[in-house]
Amino acid sequence: MRKQKELIGLLALRVSILFAVISFLAILIFISIKGFKVLNIGFLLEVPKDGMTKGGIFPAIIGTLYLSIGTVIFALPLGVLSAIYLIEYAKHKGLTKTIRIGVDALAGVPSVVFGLFGLAVFVKLFNFGVSILSGALTLGIMILPVIIKASEEAILAVPKEFKEASFAVGATKWQTITKIVFPTALPGIITGTILGIGRAAGETAPILFTAVTFYQRLLPHSILDEVMALPYHIYALMTEGTASEYQVPIAYGTAVVLLGLVMSINFIAILIRIRGRRAKKW
């Protein structure tokens, strides 16, 4: 009886993990099979044609790239500096706890709410309009917690012996942080940043009202231009327009590109983490 119960229980656990793995593989394989049919160089490098029924998705790829870069430029320094403060400077326990609660709370805010904030503040109040800038700032605030947490963890893992050795030769705290702590924590910070990019590149709701447009023939010229973006492109192809028999295949192609992009980003982050763990000698 006990034995059977155990067998069933452990089986249920295995079923759970299989469910997760299979769900992932199902999405990956299904979208890959359908998507690779329409994927070719032209699809990647051409602009959309004939009212989105032909051509490629080049502007959407570029748009997502621009948005991701802008997001990182904004969020990375803020996140790293916050983490440095939390780990190396903040003395008061209550203060650090309060800040951490804020970080967790920000991480839990729904993405569409960030979109509303971006619309009201960046698009309207600051008058950046629907633009790369507005979108990147909105996404940047959204991934800030990811970067702070990853940086905190990475900085915390720097052995105290390194810091002491640096102080012992007469380095100041800031020199120690910039020359020893930061470089040592860098792989971890990069991993976190990459995960953040992956998140930003795949998000739709925050850029829906702040950055994207359905169709654009020319590439954006400045950060105040609106852009196309891969995730929004999928949504738009599926919900707008009338020629769905032409649009759905393009959506498959876009989905495989987006999924490929985001998955390779995540994969790289995981690889860096595993390699970092192996290379670590201290």
């Binding site: 390194f162 102080f167 012992a168 030769v169 380095a171």
Partner: peptide, 28 residues
């Protein structure tokens, strides 16, 4: 600390090259 150097119990070179380790204090 420039006048009073220290060597620790736990061997603690920086995760940098041999050269960079020695040069570190000089740069500082």
């Amino acid at each position: 600390r420039k006048k009073v150097g220290m060597v620790f119990q736990k061997v603690n070179p920086f995760p940098k090259t041999i050269f960079e380790n020695v040069v570190y204090g000089l740069k500082i």
